[in-house]
Each structure stands twice: as structure tokens, then as C-alpha cells.
Amino acid sequence: MEITRSKQFTADKAWGAKLIANMDGITTRLHWTNEPYIWHINDGQEVFVVLDGVVEMWFKVDGLPQSTLLEAGDIFYASVGTEHVAHPQGEARILVIEKEGSV
């Protein structure tokens, strides 16, 4: 058993992470960041939960980029093949659930 105080979590670099759990190849990680990630497509599905801060999530629909603002408590689900990139607006803490080894 372990308790993680997500609002107190920081990392040495943007997108630094703490592994919360690995359940049969599905990882749950807490990320801290203050910088955008890269456009990518995961190896499987991804659940992206903003715990603290605001994140502009960019994603492509039929090859065209679109975005939405995610605030604390909002959840973004990327189905298989969804190209996306997260742009935090300042510091953000994000819970990511995805297949182990995914980008």
C-alpha cells in the first residue's frame, strides 16, 4: 500500500514520472510537466487525467489538428491510433494509464 500526494509531486525534468502501478502490463504513472510533449500515437489506448493545472490537448481528426482545454478533473481518452500532444499551461500534474512501454 502507498499513498501519493499528487499536488506535491514534482520531477527533475518535464514529463518526469512516478510509477504508481503496473497491473499486468498496464501502467499508471503520475507525471509532472511544465513543457509540451511531442506529437505521438500510443501502442494502445491511453487515459489521460489532469489532476492539477490546465493542459491544452491537441489531437487529429481525419488528419486535421484540433484542441481542447483540459482542467483539473478532466479526462482525455485516446483510442488506438489517436495522434495527440499535450501542452500544459504552466505546471501540470497528470495521471496517465497506458500499455507498458508506450511512448
Rank of each mutant, 00 (worst) to 15 (best):
L95S: 01
Q66P: 12
E35M: 15
Y77F: 11
K7P: 10
R5K: 02
A92T: 07
I94W: 01
I94N: 00
S67K: 13
I3D: 04
L95K: 01
D12N: 15
G53A: 09
H84L: 09
A21M: 09
A86H: 04
I20F: 10
K7Q: 12
T10A: 01
V49E: 04
E91D: 15
G90C: 14
D52R: 04
S67T: 10
H31D: 05
I26M: 08
V103D: 08
A78G: 08
P88H: 03
Q89M: 13
K13D: 10
V61F: 13
S79M: 06
E98T: 00
L19I: 11
L69V: 04
F9H: 08
A17Q: 11
G63K: 03
D43P: 06
R29V: 05
L69T: 02
D12I: 15
T4S: 05
D24Y: 07
W32M: 01
P65S: 03
R93H: 05
E56Q: 14
N22Y: 06
D62L: 05
L51K: 00
Y37H: 13
R5A: 05
D43S: 14
K13M: 12
L69P: 06
N34G: 07
A14P: 15
I38D: 15
T68P: 10
W39N: 08
H40K: 07
K99P: 02
E100Y: 06
H87P: 09
G53K: 01
